[in-house]
Write a protein that binds this DNA or RNA. Structure first.
Lengths: 237, 237
DNA sequence: GCATCCGATTTGGTATACCAAGGTGGTGTA
DNA sequence: TACACCACCTTGGTATACCAAATCGGATGC
């Protein structure tokens, strides 16, 4: 039969990616191919392949001849939020025209299943996953795969900070309600309202995130996180 | 290979990319790592690295266990045009707020220098390059690197067909005039007009491109180009 | 005591050998 | 003649050896 077991490269990519997104590998941390080879018990060939894919995703980057886990860059976070406003705002307008009621209901069902308060586990992780999934699924209703890819790529780059957005139950509840409101407008085929609510949600969430990041940056840096402030360029290490 | 500045991998990536974009490697053509190794006189390691980067760019893709040059996909072209409308339309609105007069004048100077009839190279190549550069530079005026990346990625995926848009001197003149009109609105700090003109330009150009592609698809296929016809709606993942 | 130079070590870049899986063609049999 | 089977060969996946450049440390000379 075919590959029931994923190839070493895929496994390694998944494990490295998970380690970066969980902040197990800190932003700004230096990576060496031979170090990863030892840590993950694979040879350099799959290590290099995984690094290449993560580089394309923006999760690692070159630092001179070497590699670093991409630092958290406040300017990049703002830029990605603007991109999401543009893409998701247009996508939901397309969804008003193209998505069937059943398509919308399916996304609504996912949203309802992820209503805050259900289930235990890590609330923050749950909130991050639910939020990322919601925005990707919503964009998918546009029927435009290029927009889905753009949104997914942005959400990936933002994944390491989004847990800050959903730290409190109140924040999770607000996000859920705003998501629900967008879907309501979409169900009512009200493109202007849906787009306005969605872009407002993205902008508001981002504003709160940047505020939290700025407030906590000293403490986060103390935990070993490299956070690139707004103005100056990258000064790794 | 004595070039000290560019590594083998970068050189190979550039040459492969050029071969794909120039249609020297036909869309849909099967690629083997060992074949490329022989054709480009490099070992498999840089070949694999280059293929990985081109895969991330969408210029090659996996086909089972092997590789193919990405076919030209009419649905993808339409989707990318929609993405560009959303991103570039928003970017020019940001540019109205953020770009200095000098920034805008610099882009205008580039546009004037690329006025149809000037310069060298074949007219079509010239038109493709000028168009791609213009849209990227225009997006750059937004000050948002994520938007620039999104537009550049879309233009890369579209590069193999854009020559069809600018086949005739009349088409090149029209594109140039529409570009100029966007810049005029931007100089006048008229966000609504700039965004409307730009999205209309992107949509109109794309419509003409799709019409030309549909009309010529038989002949193009005869030249060995694999063109994927309009596919059914999205059901990925 | 300080600066400088040199060499050992570490690093990514490259070439290549080996492996397993899948496809192909030929051959032998019914 | 048609079909089934098997050997071979091509392919991507992986491991690893070697190289050049950069770095770091210590020894040396002023």
């Amino acid at each position: 039969m075919t590959n029931v077991l994923a190839s070493q490269t895929v496994q390694l990519y998944d494990r490295l990616r998970a380690a970066i997104l969980s902040l197990d590998l800190a932003p700004g941390e230096r990576l060496t191919e031979r170090g990863l080879e030892a840590s993950f018990d694979a040879s350099r060939t799959p290590v290099r392949a995984a690094l290449g894919r993560l580089d394309a995703e923006g999760l690692v980057q070159r630092d001179g001849r070497g590699w670093i886990v991409s630092p958290i860059d406040l300017a990049e976070i703002g830029a990605l939020a603007e991109l999401r406003e543009a893409v998701e705002g247009a996508a939901v307008r397309l969804a008003v025209q193209r998505a069937t009621d059943a398509d919308i209901a399916a996304v609504a069902a996912l949203l309802d299943a992820a209503r805050p308060g259900e289930g235990g586990g890590t609330d923050a992780e749950q909130g991050v996953r639910a939020g990322g999934d919601f925005h990707e699924q919503l964009t998918r209703l546009s029927g435009n795969p290029a927009m889905v890819d753009a949104v997914r790529g942005a959400m990936t780059r933002l994944a390491r900070t989004r847990w800050l957005e959903v730290r409190t139950p109140a924040a999770r509840e607000q996000a859920w309600l705003e998501h629900r409101a967008v879907l309501n407008a979409l169900e009512a085929r009200d493109a202007d309202t849906a787009s306005r609510l969605l872009t407002g949600h993205i902008r508001g969430t981002n504003d709160r995130l940047l505020a939290a990041l700025a407030a906590d940056s000293r403490r986060l840096r103390g935990h070993g996180l490299a956070i690139v402030p707004d103005a100056p360029p990258v000064t790794p290490r």
